[in-house]
């Protein structure tokens, strides 16, 4: 019988510490699938963030270098400039990428650094216990916006992907979700395409993933999957945001 589904070889056989229903685990798997399919495990270097994914090196079976909170794009830049023929990606949450690390992200994108960023948008600070993130929706409650996020006091949810897409250095940016089989397949293809662009020297690529955080959203796993479609995607519409078309042959 043909085996159609197996653990990717670049994913270690270790149980995830993520909460049940968390989008991080699914995205980890997709990254490993892409790495396996492209056959790049030996030349891939990942940069995990401070955030729930801080222990990502326990799962990814390729080289990893921890970055201080928010500095993933700067650390990845350093690796890539030193080892241009490696595939370098930074894995970052929304607090990490769009709050404390905004400057590093923005400028790496603007320099057109030939790296890939996997950007996990779960609209909260997961690891620290559910504080407001730059991506928290208006009216959404969190431990630091107890009455709900208020535009005049707390600002608006930031659409980083759209902002970065306006920079000339960015090659490919897509927003995906991991809340349904269809969306998961699509996200997997996007991640693979981003890595391929990097291998072709296209410039800065970023895949934003709308990612369930049932724990801090205080929902069941199923509710949180629905919430992504029904609520979150209204503020953060999924789809290709920018594609310079460099790797047309790889498009799905």
């Amino acid at each position: 019988m043909k085996k159609v589904f197996a653990r990717p070889t670049s994913l270690k056989d270790t149980p995830f510490h993520y909460c049940a229903g968390c989008g991080h685990s699914i995205t980890h798997r997709l990254i490993c699938d892409a790495v396996d399919q492209l056959g790049i495990r030996g030349i891939t270097i990942g940069v995990p963030p401070a955030g729930c994914a801080v222990l990502a090196y326990n799962y990814f079976d390729f080289d990893m270098l921890e970055a201080p909170h928010g500095r993933g794009c700067a650390v990845a830049t350093g690796i890539k400039r030193t080892l241009p023929d490696r595939v370098v990606f930074s894995y970052q949450g929304d607090g990490d990428l769009a709050a404390i690390g905004t400057a590093e992200t923005f400028h790496a994108a603007n320099r057109g650094e030939n790296i890939t960023v996997i950007f996990i948008n779960n609209a909260v600070y997961g690891m620290t216990g559910g504080q407001m993130a730059p991506t928290t929706l208006l009216g959404m409650t969190s431990t630091t916006s107890p009455p709900g996020r208020s535009a005049p006091l707390d600002g608006h949810p930031i659409r980083m992907s759209e902002i970065l897409a306006r920079l000339d250095g960015t090659a490919y940016i897509e927003r995906c979700a991991v809340n349904s089989p269809q969306n998961i397949l699509r996200a997997g293809r996007a991640i693979r395409k981003a890595f391929q662009y990097q291998m072709d020297g296209a410039g800065f690529t970023l895949i934003e993933v709308l990612s369930q955080c049932p724990t801090n959203w205080k929902m069941t796993a199923a509710e949180s999957c629905r919430w992504v479609d029904e609520v979150m995607a209204k503020t953060f519409p999924v789809g290709v945001i920018k594609d310079i078309g460099k790797g047309e042959k790889h498009a799905d």
């Binding site: 607090g95 709050a99 600070y125 620290t128 216990g129 504080q131 431990t143 630091t144 107890p146 006091l153």
Partner: peptide, 19 residues
């Protein structure tokens, strides 16, 4: 402030009471 463990409760207290 900015979230970081183990002082989050202080930031959260301020979020609730300072305003």
């Amino acid at each position: 402030g900015y979230p970081i463990t183990p002082q989050n409760e202080l930031t959260e207290y301020m979020a609730e009471h300072m305003r």
